[in-house]
Write a protein that binds this DNA or RNA. Structure first.
Length: 254
DNA sequence: CAAATTTGACCGGT
DNA sequence: ACCGGTCAAATTTG
């Protein structure tokens, strides 16, 4: 059985692995630049530090909380972890908090709305799968800046891709056949000119307790109705596919 | 010109 | 009535 700390360690290591894989893809594609690789390298190093900190310290570091806490409260055992994560994937919310918005996550999204949220000074952007109509894909996501200094962007995934958007295009070949399109939010925020990375869940969400609470509520509701279980590898591969660099958007409501 | 984005209107839940 | 989420017409982009 795994303790909660073990779960967090696992998550940190997986995050590092995803970033490492992404870095590998960048190198394979000769897309090497400091802007594209540095964030990945930092993420990898942070992941190791975080994982080590979980092993060393009696209590987890306050600024690095696993998204598992966001999901459905305490879980016991790796299978439970898988299950909870997967439930979130399949049905309702999977949450990623990252210093950069998780815009290019391997899928193609179309923005369909943007709103000012009462609980936040920053606007929330709404996306759905580009193939929502033609393939009846139910996947959607919301991206919102939830914190400044350092910036933290929360990406909330809702629903599951029923289209067949290839999340592994970068790995299967070097053709950018399905890469997400760049979306710019010049009206509501600044656009970062540098390449953006597929940074995986940098996990820092203590500033948004209310939203977390609401999400937990939703998660718990949905988890009651659905039972899914897949390999954690597949899960992470699904949610953190290798990305092509250069896709990025930033937004704010300034 | 087609596809994507923007943005105010609309809708359902609370 | 308020709020978050979605729609859809207008606008922009490639």
């Amino acid at each position: 059985m795994y303790s909660e700390r073990d779960h967090k360690t696992l998550v940190a290591l997986l995050r590092g692995q995803v970033s490492a894989n992404t870095l590998k893809a960048l190198i394979a594609n000769r897309e090497i630049s400091s802007a594209s690789t540095e964030p990945l390298i930092n993420t990898i190093l942070d992941s190791f530090s975080l994982a080590l900190s979980f092993m060393d310290s009696p209590t987890p570091l306050p600024h690095h909380e696993s998204f598992t806490q966001n999901m459905a409260g305490p879980v016991s055992g790796i299978s439970s972890l898988k299950k909870k994560i997967c439930q979130a994937q399949v049905i309702e919310h999977y949450i990623d908090d990252s210093p950069t918005p998780l815009l290019d996550d391997g899928f193609s999204w179309r923005k369909y709305g943007q709103k000012t949220i009462k609980t936040s000074p920053h606007q929330r952007c709404y996306f759905r799968c580009t193939y929502a109509k033609e393939k009846n894909c139910k996947a959607a996501k919301r991206v919102q800046k939830i914190k400044d200094n350092p910036p933290v962007y929360r990406t909330t995934y809702v629903g599951k891709h029923t289209c067949e958007a290839p999340a592994f295009a970068v790995f299967t070949n070097n053709e950018d056949t399905y890469g997400s399109k760049m979306i710019e939010f010049d009206k509501c925020d600044h656009v970062m000119s540098e390449s953006v990375t597929p940074q995986v869940a940098s996990i820092d969400h203590q500033a948004v307790a209310m939203e977390d609470k609401a999400t937990d509520h939703i998660m718990n509701q949905e988890c009651d109705d659905n039972e899914f279980l897949v390999d954690v590898d597949n899960l992470w591969a699904c949610y953190f596919p290798p990305l092509s660099p250069g896709d990025l958007m930033f937004f704010d409501n300034t």
